[in-house]
């Protein structure tokens, strides 16, 4: 069932590269997987300890050293205010990643609960929940988030809450479809016949067989959410001006992008590397959670 999704994955070309030979065919953990997990892990680690590693203050303005190209002193150069870009990246990683993870985690929890309730509940419950999702999906997330965040007062927290509130309907839709595929399976019925309680039935039998496409979706969403958070920061309802947030750094450097490439290149590269790493981790997770792929094909 889930095996067929691999052929539609946009990452198929990369997954062929995945360690070549045996590991690729058997869905094992190859070199690309290890690298992706490593990079994603490093990003998370940097989010935790980055601020302590930063060689300079990310906020120290030094107009005399403005827009210096990468050098031994400033590895990634300086921005228009003479602030050290490497230091700002290290500090901003925490902001960006935490905000992104918070949005996705909240949307995933709400989406899973709503989607599962819709799939397993009575028809009227399903109808009500799905119509709410339709309303949510019919409006562009960034506009709604913009309004919500502005109403709550511009701050990164507002942006996170607003974005999570607009992001979950997509997950609810997906989870509802996935759970409906599994809920009538004979193994669910046979578990019910063993006296398994309804809650255990949902959490140990139905959801583990449904959610692997959701994991892939969430890791694919990391890049999208990162960009929207950055966008919200750019228009002023997200991270506030001096704070070092990756997207906000790019936005703030739009005037110098042509004359001083490093001001947008390094924050952009940080976002790109993180996004790709999380995408690959998602693909790897999908394989890991599907035992048919993990241990070889059907006999």
């Amino acid at each position: 069932m889930t095996a067929t999704t691999s052929t539609r994955s946009p990452l198929k070309a990369l997954s062929v590269l995945r360690a070549g030979g045996r590991a690729a065919r058997h869905g094992g953990t190859g070199i690309v997987d290890r690298a992706a997990v490593g990079v994603a892990g490093c990003m998370v680690l940097l989010a935790l300890v980055g601020p302590y590693l930063a060689p300079m203050s990310p906020y120290a303005v030094d107009l005399g050293a403005a827009l210096q190209p990468p050098s031994a002193e400033h590895w990634f150069g300086t921005d228009v205010n003479g602030r050290d870009i490497l230091s700002r990246l290290l500090v901003g990683g925490r902001t960006t990643l935490l905000a992104t993870v918070a949005v996705i985690a909240a949307a995933m929890v709400v989406g899973t609960l709503v989607g599962t309730a819709a799939a397993l509940g009575r028809r009227v419950v399903d109808e009500i929940l799905m119509r709410i999702c339709d309303i949510g999906l019919s409006m562009p997330a960034i506009i709604v988030a913009l309004g919500l965040a502005a109403a709550m007062g511009p701050s990164l927290q507002s942006a996170v809450i607003a974005l999570a509130a607009t992001w979950w309907p997509g997950y609810a839709r997906l989870v509802r479809t996935l759970v409906r595929e599994v809920r009538d399976a004979e193994f669910v019925e046979s578990a019910r016949m063993l006296g398994v309680s309804p809650a255990r039935l949902v959490f140990r039998h139905v959801l583990p067989n449904s959610l692997s496409p959701l994991y892939v979706q969430t890791t694919l969403d990391v890049s999208a959410v990162m960009l929207v958070i950055s966008g919200l920061s750019f228009v002023g309802v997200g991270a506030q001006v001096p704070s070092a947030e990756w997207g906000a750094m790019i936005a703030a450097s739009r005037d110098t992008a042509i004359t001083a490439w490093w001001t947008v290149f390094f924050p952009g590269a940080a976002i790109a590397v993180t996004a790709i790493a999380f995408n690959l981790v998602g693909d790897w997770l999908r394989v890991r959670t599907d035992p048919t792929l993990k241990t070889g094909g059907r006999p």
């Binding site: 399976a185 039998h205 583990p208």
Partner: peptide, 12 residues
Amino acid sequence: FQDPLAALNPVK
């Protein structure tokens, strides 16, 4: 059950 593959949870 009749069909032994369908009656088993594939991820456990």
